[in-house]
Amino acid sequence: MFHFFRTLRHNPIYLREHGRWGQPNRFFSTLSRYSPFVFMGAFVVGICSTSYGFPLLMGLNSDIIGYWLIVCLPTFAVQIMLLGALVTVPTLTTPLVSTEMEQGTWEILRLTPQPMLDLLVAKMLGALARLKWLWVLLLIGTFLQVAGGALGILGIVAIVPEDLTEQVNMSVLLILLSILLVTRPWAEIAFIAVLGLVISTIVRSTRLGLATCYIILFIVRTLNGNFVWGIIAILVGEALNSESLFAIVSLTPSMIYLLSTAVLMLVLIWRANVLTTMSNE
């Protein structure tokens, strides 16, 4: 695996998806033409999806609104970029194998000496590497989130210096929040990228694969949101204190995305094995 990542920049499969030889993905090219609209949509949805969280957070302590803004503004920016990525990433990873099958090049590619799992992962990474600017912005957003979290902790220490227990509780809460903020976008993107690739190895039609991927994305995002988990936590955990409730609401979605990604990786390994061993069809 180390060798694979060390030589990735020379891997022809990675380079092909990255655009060294031709433009392999017409779905992504089409979407790219409409990218301003995608990000305008993401901006509107981003406002809607993050706005409910602001008063809740501010309501905990109105004195630290300034610190929350430091946390919330990068979060808002990250949310917009995340939504843009979630719309874009399926068009990058879902066509990876199914398009090859459609155009009759998959068998030719299968006969090259590239190990199947390497081939699939190189394809996925090569395709994702095309969103260079997005990764840079997401990294900046993540950095600002971490910085905001750190400032928040300092703020708590400054505001409630006499109560150590309260300081610790608030700091833990902020650390949990920071973990959520930092990992959630990446976990979601990893989930949807691997999901797209797994679907691509199963379906024979890219359009069907894309439709499947977007439907699953919509269902998972709806059911695995903070709002739904908040209701669940309130319904089943009446005895929990507010910190525990907040931790559950904050961390569960990220945990579910990370676990789902791990499961999808196992499915991908299985699919790679199926595609490597000779077909019985």
Partner: peptide
């Protein structure tokens, strides 16, 4: 072996030399 299937696909988005270069790199 070198195999040419009955229904063979080519990458239409590539140039002729790129097509050969890509597969040679894969090998």
């Amino acid at each position: 072996i070198g195999y040419m299937p009955d229904f063979f696909g080519v990458y239409d988005d590539m140039k002729v030399w790129e097509y050969l270069d890509f597969f040679a790199a894969c090998y």
